[in-house]
Amino acid sequence: MITATRKSLDEIKNMIRPYTRVLVAGCGSCVAECAAGGEKEVAQLVSALSMAFKIEGGGPSLTEVTVDRQCVNIFLDELEDPTRSHDAVLSLACGAGVQALAERHADRNIFPALDTQFLGQTKSPGLWLENCLGCGQCKLFYFGAICPLGRCAKQLFNGPCGGSQNGKCETDSEKPCAWQLIIDRLDGLGALNRLEEIYEPCDWSLKQGRGPRKIEREDQQS
């Protein structure tokens, strides 16, 4: 899933301060899972903003709404009328959702309330970890299902670097060295020989070769 964290209240206030009626729109998918942009977080943010503006001496009126997915066009139909009846939208979706909504409203400012972070997993309640870069050429087979692009600070295909000590990364003594994890796992699988191979450089054209990527499938189209 895509993870995100809330921007500071000050940054959010500065974006929406000039408006009279602001729709605060949550998203019930990934950002709800990571407790950043679901219905609960919308309610908290609206309460917090209302109080903060009250202390300032006034601010926009805020309306709460949450849809299942802001990144899927048909779900955005639900936001069509509420968006039109407000001056601006503060979206608690990821960057994809904010843009999908904005695309439909040329005459409305759509502001992000979150900083979109990464593709990752919910390891345990309250702990989310990055583990995929979306490179477009999954090589997890070679690395025992631990991605060196997503999880090694230097994205080494032929690691570990000289900074791996006691199983931890040189950038952060709390963080596991992805290469130590790869070696341990392949060792357990009896497949350490996979690491004698010299892996070719990543083909970044599959990620960013011609700008934003597109997946188009006629069989899925209406």
Binding site: A153, K154, Q155, L156, F157, N158, G159, C161, I198, Y199, E200, P201, C202, W204
Partner: peptide, 9 residues
């Protein structure tokens, strides 16, 4: 951090 190639590459 670019790390387009690694040292071995």
């Amino acid at each position: 951090g670019v790390f387009d190639l690694d040292s071995i590459q």
